[in-house]
Design a protein around this nucleic acid. Structure first.
Length: 92
DNA sequence: TGGTTCGATTTGA
DNA sequence: TCAAATCGAACCA
């Protein structure tokens, strides 16, 4: 229990690397972190992470393409994703 | 400190 | 559609 778990840090690191207007699935993050089966843990980490202000949790969604959830509100998450996709389209 | 339960999930039958 | 698996963190004694 005393272990901090490098997996947590790894997950956060990967989430931060997510480009603008790009969404990643929990499984993808888990896989990048080293544990493809830790998709649930990813959501749990994002929910209780202490770097929530530095991590775009709204870019992480379910593999089904649906919005999993969001600590600040699922509705806000959807809006943010659409907004970022819009920006991406504009830059494009 | 140690053990148990839950969660923003995923996958298989 | 339902249930099991699996990882991290919170909760309780």
């Amino acid at each position: 229990m005393s272990k901090k778990g490098s997996f947590t840090k790894r997950v956060l690191q990967e989430v931060v690397k997510i480009p603008l207007g790009y969404t990643v699935t929990y499984k993808e993050i888990a896989a990048r972190a080293g544990n493809p089966k830790a998709a649930r843990a990813v959501g749990n980490i994002l929910k209780h992470n202490r770097w929530v202000f530095f991590i775009p949790c709204h870019r992480v969604i379910k593999s089904s393409g649906d919005i999993g959830g969001y600590a600040l509100g699922k509705k806000l998450k959807r809006e943010l994703i659409i907004f970022e996709q819009k920006i991406k389209n504009m830059l494009k």
